[in-house]
Design a protein around this nucleic acid. Structure first.
Length: 437
RNA sequence: GUGGCUGUAGCUCAGUUGGUAAGAGCACCCGACUGUGGAUCGGGAGGUCGGGGGUUCAAGUCCCCUCAGCCACCCCA
């Protein structure tokens, strides 16, 4: 046990697992770019004010989950989510002036000071998008379709798309009033958490899982009944657009989302197989955020995909194994004796310079042990360069796949030969020159 | 932040009411008449039993604290 451990809620990504992340990144990148999204990279930390302003002062994230760093009178916070930073960059560089409508995507770590749990860490990775500059409900549908395509691209199938509309400010105010009026008389009957939610964010009461509260909520007024005409029309168009795409979805009134900036369309992608923490994509429209951060009135929509949860879902479905394991060098150089090492050392550099991937022993292992290492590392070819070979100006190439070995001149075009053999394994010849099996 | 469970070699785990129990499998290293991998066999290294304190003649085994992970909440990707 070493003296130090990774800080709570963080983890090391060992080489074995890195290719899995690369696969997820590459797969998503391809889909995102096919949908016309361009990558943007914003700083990992921003001025603290940016988050408290955009997320809402009373949200849990701002109140207790921010990684904040105070130095003198400057306060910065490691980003708990990416939307605020992207919108800030969009405005700071006046992107809206040259090309108002823009689609961005990002991949990177986010930070929240929470109690860790599976699929919930203090540093976690999100892949997300922001489409800024349009209020077209077809864009909402496209964004949801994009989320589904991302998951499908990774091989996931059994996710549920849940959508809802929380309307615009006036709709929310109207509904909040109705809901408050409905709950207030029975407030004492609700659970402790709900009584707190009632004060902070009354919509969340609808999301309670306590049996008593679920029963009490049964006859609660529905948000959709309180949407104004324009909001309702937007939501209807979203639904018909999704239907036009053949994308299955459910309208779920319980989806209210935690952040203040959401308006109209909100949605989540759930993996029922994951248990309690089963939302792997969450997002929605935020038509006033750009304005609140000091820009003109520009509507936008976005979502983010939690990579950790997505990987958990992939693991459950056996989609990860194929992407595990670091790809070792296909060529391994073996030195029979101590005196043979310098020439292997030089030959390795030459092969690498020619673009081949080659490696060799640096632990002073015996010939046998070097062979074992080559085998374990999955080398396709072993190059044996001993005193005998050197004196004759050749190198012995053993094909580990077919167990056939053959000599090749050192001064010939060795790298060309090696490429050929890698593509087409050595086969035993009729007068077999040393194959065994 | 709240409640519960867990923490023994690199990995997965076993350790009877506290008393030669610090062990197994896999992995690893070395070897099997000395220029060759994968099978088999033999040998070996590796753990202050998460950390600290306490009870006791004696603690991996009991108590307290602490750290970390997991599960469920709060909340959320």
């Amino acid at each position: 046990m070493s003296k130090f451990k990774a800080a709570r809620g963080t983890e090391d990504l060992l080489p074995e697992r890195v290719p899995l992340y690369n696969f997820v990144h590459e797969s998503c990148r391809a889909v995102l770019e096919r949908f016309g999204y361009a990558e943007i990279r914003t700083p990992l930390f921003e001025e603290t004010r940016l988050f408290s302003r955009s997320l809402g002062e009373t949200t849990d994230i701002v109140e207790k989950e921010m990684f904040t760093c105070q130095r003198g009178d400057t306060s910065v916070t490691f980003r708990p989510e990416a939307t605020a930073g992207v919108v800030r960059a969009y405005l700071e560089h006046n992107l809206h002036k040259s090309k108002k409508f823009q689609k961005f995507y990002y991949i990177g770590p986010m930070f929240r000071f929470e109690r860790p749990q599976a699929a919930r860490q203090r540093q976690f990775e999100q892949i997300g998008i922001e489409a800024i500059g349009s209020h077209d409900p077809r864009l909402d549908a496209e964004v949801i379709e994009l989320g589904a395509r991302l998951l499908e691209g990774l091989g996931l199938k059994d996710f549920e798309v849940r959508i809802n509309s929380i309307g615009d400010r006036e709709d929310r105010d109207r509904y909040r009033e109705a809901l408050t009026a409905f709950i207030r008389p029975k407030l004492e009957e609700y659970c402790e958490d709900c009584r707190r939610r009632f004060e902070r964010n009354v919509f969340r009461v609808l999301d309670c899982k306590q049996r008593g509260c679920v029963a009490l909520n049964k006859d609660a007024p529905a948000f959709l009944d309180h949407l104004g005409e324009a909001s309702l029309a937007h939501f209807d168009e979203l639904r018909s657009s999704l239907e036009a795409l053949g994308r299955e979805f459910q309208v779920d009134p319980a989806i209210v989302r935690g952040l203040d900036y959401y308006t109209h369309t909100v949605f989540e992608f759930k993996m029922p197989s994951l248990g309690a923490r089963n939302t792997i994509i969450g997002g929605g429209r935020y038509n006033h955020l750009v304005e609140e951060l000091g820009g003109p009135e520009i509507p936008a929509i976005g979502f983010s995909l939690g990579v950790t949860g997505t990987l958990l879902a992939m693991e459950k479905q056996g989609l990860c194994e194929a992407h595990l394991g670091w790809r070792e060098c296909p060529i391994y150089l073996v030195s029979p004796g101590e005196a043979d090492r310098p020439s292997a050392f030089v030959l390795a550099q030459e092969l690498r310079a020619s673009g081949l991937c080659a490696d060799l022993d640096y632990e002073g292992k015996s010939l046998k042990a070097q062979m074992r290492t080559a085998h374990r590392r999955g080398a396709s070819l072993v190059l044996i360069l001993g005193e005998d070979e050197r004196s004759r100006g050749v190198v012995l190439v053993r094909d580990m796949r077919s167990s056939v070995q053959e000599e090749f001149p050192l001064d010939g075009d060795l790298q060309v030969e090696l490429r050929r053999i890698l593509a087409e394994p050595l086969q035993a010849e009729e007068e077999g020159s040393g194959g065994d099996s």
